Amino acid sequence: MFDITDAELAWLDQEDAHVAEMIRRHGVYITYVGGACSMPGCACAEAGESPAFGYTAGLFGIGHPELAITGVSMNTAGQVLNEVAAAVLDGAHLLPGMTLDAASMPRRISVQRVPNPAEIAFTANRHYHRPDRASVPLLQLVYADEKGRFPWDDGYALTPDAQPLPGQWRA
């Protein structure tokens, strides 16, 4: 266990309130992890850092897994996650193996189950008071390359570190 200062506890309380307010107001809160250190050529990336990714908090409250996307900019992650989450909030239920088209992503998206959500969805788990052993479920939105091929298809154009598959990355 680690010691937490009063200032850190106060910050966490404010962050928890902010996340809850965003979920009340918009249905989901999006966390984006990454940035300069996930850029190609960064020493951290060479040391095995995960690529940039974004994920939702809020869908578990309506009985649906949270959503994640890797290897895209903060803007793209926000647009795609907001669009797909809006469909879920309107009644869609995504299942692993489904293929989606999203206006915010010019490529097809495949929905895949993430086997290690406790290593990724920290904000969602904190919001729902879920311990690691009972993490919120998480679905990864895996996007096709420019020719419509997914990472498991022959000839896929992107490198594995550009968009790792579920279970091959963590926060």
Rank of each mutant, 00 (worst) to 15 (best):
V111Q: 10
G63K: 11
A144Q: 03
P160C: 08
V72H: 00
L158I: 04
I23R: 02
G167W: 00
A162T: 07
D16G: 06
G63Q: 09
N82C: 12
G41Q: 04
L95V: 15
L165E: 04
G63C: 04
G155H: 03
Q163C: 12
S135A: 15
H129Y: 10
Y156G: 10
D132S: 12
H127K: 12
T31F: 01
Y29H: 15
A103G: 01
E119D: 15
M22P: 00
H26P: 01
W169T: 13
P106L: 15
L89H: 07
A121W: 00
R170C: 14
Q140G: 04
H26T: 13
D132T: 05
A86D: 14
I120V: 14
P160D: 05
E49N: 11
D101C: 11
P117S: 08
H26F: 03
D145L: 02
R25E: 13
D3A: 14
N116F: 02
S104E: 13
L59K: 08
E46K: 15
I62D: 05
I120G: 01
N125C: 08
E66K: 07
I69E: 04
G155I: 01
R149H: 12
G35C: 10
P131M: 06
A52D: 04
V136E: 00
C44P: 00
G91F: 05
K147H: 13
T5M: 12
K147C: 11
H18C: 08
